[in-house]
Design a protein around this nucleic acid. Structure first.
Lengths: 214, 214, 214, 214
DNA sequence: TATGAATGAGGCTTCATTCAT
DNA sequence: GATGAATGAAGCCTCATTCAT
């Protein structure tokens, strides 16, 4: 009896698993296609061909093309958040910000598709972009607030933090687009970019650690 | 005879003028359409309808759709440069940068089409975007260098200037997208955005004027 | 042992019953869907969803979509025949015909799905429509013949009866479509429709009862 | 000069003519397709193939598929009206109605596509059907009213006329569907159909001409 | 040069049916 | 028998571009 139940369960699981696996195949194919050719070229035909399934199969897993496109950025964006969090130490707030900056570029080297997905989502997947933005900016504002409480930042209001977060995100985007893209694949940004960012941020946003005076 | 010549000349002039006039009509129509609906919606049919000419006429003036789209940003971008230059005073370099920042937002209020053209060009008119970028960044780097020579900035290399310029441009883009768009038309950014930018830049990039201590 | 047999029997009965029950669920769901949205919108997916069964289940009970659609009208059509018969008295033939006419409209008020099924079947379920037609017209012709034998109709041949039956059915169809449909649900036809029909039929088809002169 | 103008005019006319001709080709192709296979099978691909033009051409002449389908019935319906009018004499109103009835069947023999277009339009081209209905029923009611004024009909109100018109149209439709369709093409209805209709109408709707007493 | 109809490839989506579980 | 994912054909429509007038 237990055996049967188990079998039944396994069978059912197998179905569920296969279902999830197909959806994953489509999702991953879309990630690759958008990462490589951009949203505009990511037709359902192209995605399903890349995934190795029929076009009709697509609509068993996603309501329509847009629904999938809108899931791309938030999903991978969370991967990014976790990646960066794992790489951020416990030092001074300014140093942590530099670590996050560096980890961002490490992440786009590991998941090169992310760069294009991030850059194009605002236009082609606005709903997904908004979701990602909310994910990121609330977390980021919280980080800045905590730094202010710890005395590492002064003189910025909560509203100003929000604007700052947009500047920081905009900076990452712009810099990654201009320094990381190359003919094939994604490369690390040059050192002078990191140093310029470090100078701007440590001086402009954070209070210098005690004893560190210009 | 003179009459005829004159007539001929006038005719010829009229032809050239009409030619330029037609091209201009198409260009302006494209500006309005892209500004209002974005590049993706800017089909040749829509542009020519807005311009009041036949679709075929389009191809007498532009090689193809892309060629026109690629001209949009550089052209209006130069208008922007002139606009900002006219609004920049001769005070301290940091104050000038704040003036430029403000003038940028004044410009997008005066030419509301520019915002969308700027934001979407990178994706839909990469050649035009690159041209605009070159126009802007060389001018900007020159400004920063001059400020360094004047002693208003220290400690940044030329390479770092380039990165800084991208940060500044990225900031404008991100902030304008997030604070200026509204349901109808383009609006000024809130004060706390300006103040956040001013704090970040004056402290992070420029040396404080003598006697100005945090 | 008996227990087991009983169980087996019960089980078997349950199976058969469940089988019939499932088929019935699908049939009723199709009735509702076609009645509400028409044949064109009655996809297998929609019907099975309405029935609460899987799509594949459909094909365990019907050869294909068309087979079910073709069963709809004849089945409900028989309900209609019984309904009308129960409402027809034993008076003069002309009066009976008026009663049938009225009962028809009563029926479509009671089974509002019928109207749409009837009207669309000719196009979307021709086999079923033909079957329904045969059911109705043979019965109807028999009625008219009996009336002729009873002396209530003269001067019409059997062939002409067939044509008359089609006129009467066509009249019901047309009138119901034009006077009974409304935004929500099915409503009774206005009085002047009934009176016009009565005049046309009693004068055109039946002999006036003795003493009834225009 | 005049020559040139003339040429120009001819050229322009030629363009217009060619344009109209293409539209006509599509329209006629649609008529044939719908007449032969029904609206449901009248895909744009099939129509344009029949017309010998590219699919895209379709949309230069019609907003969308439905727009064309909705034009079919009203357009051919007017042809029918003219045809019937030309065949209707000036005799007694009842005789005229019989002539119209006969002319209707003559028309569907001449334009066999009309039958299917008429029968299916209510479902597949409701807007066109409504337009046709308005065309027909207002004209028909006017005819009946005139007959009433001339003393050929008594005892029917205007509202009842409307219902009668629907009955008459429904009769034509039903009868044509059942007696005129055959495997290939459209054939005349049998005599007994005409005679049955004549009896029903002349007795049920019209007053017998003087001296004609049952 | 201006016109605008013609083209045909390509995009998104629906749906009846099959089949392994 | 029940399930529901997979299939792929077919439908409607858009659009950049060409070309005869």
């Amino acid at each position: 009896m237990k055996q049967l139940q188990a079998t039944a369960k396994v069978t059912k699981l197998n179905r569920l698993e296969r279902n999830a696996w197909t959806k994953r195949k489509i999702f991953d194919a879309a990630t690759r296609i958008v990462g490589k050719y951009g949203y505009a070229e990511a037709s359902v035909a192209r995605i399903t061909e890349e995934a190795g399934v029929a076009q009709g199969t697509f609509y068993n897993h996603f309501e329509n093309r847009q629904e999938l496109l809108d899931q791309l950025l938030p999903t991978i964006g969370l991967d990014m958040v976790n990646f960066i969090r794992a790489r951020t130490g416990t030092g001074h707030a300014a140093r942590q910000e530099i670590e996050r900056f560096g980890a961002f570029f490490d992440f786009i080297c590991e998941v090169p598709e992310f760069l294009r997905i991030l850059n194009e989502a605002e236009l082609f997947a606005p709903a997904g972009y908004q979701k990602h933005l909310d994910n990121i900016s609330t977390a980021y504002v919280r980080i800045l607030r905590r730094a202010r409480q710890a005395g590492a930042i002064s003189d910025f209001s909560d509203d100003e933090f929000e604007a700052i977060v947009h500047v920081l995100m905009g900076a990452r985007g712009y810099l990654s687009r201009h320094y990381s893209y190359s003919d094939k694949g994604v490369t690390a940004v040059p050192d002078h970019v990191v140093s310029a960012y470090r100078k701007l941020i440590t001086r402009g946003l954070f209070k210098p650690p005690l004893g560190d005076r210009r």
